[in-house]
Nucleic acid binder design. Sequence first.
RNA 1: GCCGUUGUAGCUCAGGGGUAGAGCACUUCCUUGGUAAGGAAGAGGUCAGGGGUUCAAAUCCCCUCAACGGCUCCA
Length: 647
Amino acid sequence: MSIKITLPDGSVREYPAGVSSYDIALSISEGLARNVLSAVVNGEVWDANRPIEQDSSVKLLTWNDPEGQATFWHSSAHLLAEALESLYPGVKFGTGPSIEKGFYYDVDLGEKTLSSDDFVAIENKMKELARQKNEYVRQPIGKADAIKYFTNKGDEYKLELIDGLEDGQITLYTQGGFTDLCRGPHIPNTGAVKAVKLTNIAGAYWRNNQDNKQLTRIYGITFPKQKELDEYIFQVEEAKKRDHRKLGKELDLFAFSEKVGQGLPLWLPKGAMLRERLESFLKKAQLRAGYLPVVTPHIGSKALYVTSGHWEKYGKDSFQPIKTPDADEEFMLKPMNCPHHCEIYKTKPRSYRDLPLRLAEFGTVYRYEQSGELHGLTRVRGFTQDDAHIFCRPDQVKAEFIKVIDLVLYVFKTLGFDDFSAQISLRDPENKTKYIGSDDLWEKAESAIIEAAAERSLNTVTELGEAAFYGPKLDFMVRDALGRKWQLGTIQVDYNLPNRFELEYIGSDNQKHRPVMIHRAPFGSMERFIAILIENTAGQFPLWLSPDQIAILPISEKYSDYAEEVFFALQDDDIRGFVDHRDEKIGRKIRDAEIMKVPYMLIVGEKEQNDQQVSVRKKGEGDLGSMSWSEFSTLFQKEIKENLAGF
RNA sequence: GCCGUUGUAGCUCAGGGGUAGAGCACUUCCUUGGUAAGGAAGAGGUCAGGGGUUCAAAUCCCCUCAACGGCUCCA
């Protein structure tokens, strides 16, 4: 009997029933067969050597397909498991999936603790097993037999996984002497794995639950060629050079002090300058967008947070209340600005004509983050949100939402953040009691967000159960240099606080109505945003943001006075920088300015002084020749205008 | 908070049971220069903090603190 196989180009070929994707590849070319890792069969990824019994569409997957890589890495995880079982008999296995770059396996080694010193031995074992070119053999198994197998083996984690599987849907995979519970698919044999590197080791809770036992998670990555591994390692090293913690130190932007406290960044002069530039940039954009600036204190009475509900929900995990000397008063360091802003709303009766009311504040907040969570500037305990709260009528939610999206997109575009994703976080439909607010309000808010995102053609991913307890949200996610995802901009609908603070406005019907509140922050926090900005730009900020925009470098001390004169003149044109008065040669001054990533160097010596000019050198580009001060100023302002196009 | 690793000069790091090293930065002097490191000298450390083992601890052990890689969490 023969079957029809449709390939991605639309061509249809006939093969005998039971043909595998590998056979199909072989019929096309031997080279392709060598490279085929797995195949999409009727929309599902299958083993390349799994027999196909019916007419099917088949897309062969190789290393060039993300799904092909996923298969490769998943098979590598099994190879790691096989190596571990051979080196550490009795090891129990959790799960071992492929991840974005590589794979991991969670294992229970009993009393044994593993460290990265053990990696070489494990890697060598993996390579040895890979060279055996053992086939990955798929074997469907009944639930009872599967339970029997893993009971015999004594692997309670696999038994727990089987418990959640349906009889008839269970398969085992065996390569060499190792058999694992696995839905597959896998590559044809271990021989394709030529380069192996275990990258790190970590604790990970079984089934991602803090109440469960912590297993040892071993991360690794493999490649079909050693050269690809070398390239990968090189790229990781390059990425580490852009780490904001490293650059923050090198460029004197910020620091931490044990004495000040964990997660409490100190902004150094250059970092503070960068931060101020960003703030004034957004303040200007917000004024144009109809926001009204407000300022509120860093603390608020505990009663404020009892009203808002945050005391009940987060009180015990917050910095604890501050007490006054005599009375029983208690104040909280503010963990957010919204309760204060609600009180501003309430300072007078509001009419529907006043809405939307957009209150904006760069508000510094303090949250007691778990110590293990702190991370450079991206996760800190004291940070400043570019916060605003929009109080609007229910019918205005969608339009306001779109306006905020436009503002966020404008900010991202101006700063060159083109690699981001928009995440829509909705409530978990299975667990509605976790959330505050009626079904009706939630449905309206969720559809407003979805429609607004669609209207602005955002590339969105939707996460169920990720909404805040008070409302759905839209977050703008970016990656840091090492590929970790962080939330920057956020837009959140809130039906909770208006109720708790009993916010009202008088409608056109002369009745009282409840406004809707939208929390939003385009940067998210100054700290995290700047961290990502540093990594995106590798510390080479656009001219308008550079802490020092120019360095004036006198050829010798004789030209110091002239250098000062130029400096003061350019300061009048709002150009920031410094004169390098050190007793060093010009080459040295240039080198140091280059290392500090100063965008423009103005070299002044005898010639420049006589001609009332400056010799302009652009960082990374070199000598631009001599020009008058005002010519330089014009060129400078032009570049800034281009940076801020559309502003 | 949990698992693992790390902590030596301002920075990057070497050393390792017999009481401390390099390069850069810093200070002083010489040098007054033309587009990515001029030369010399000097100063600088309770080897994260505390406890223990030892004749002797920066080195070995324990605790604490902090950083790093993850996990969990994230108003």
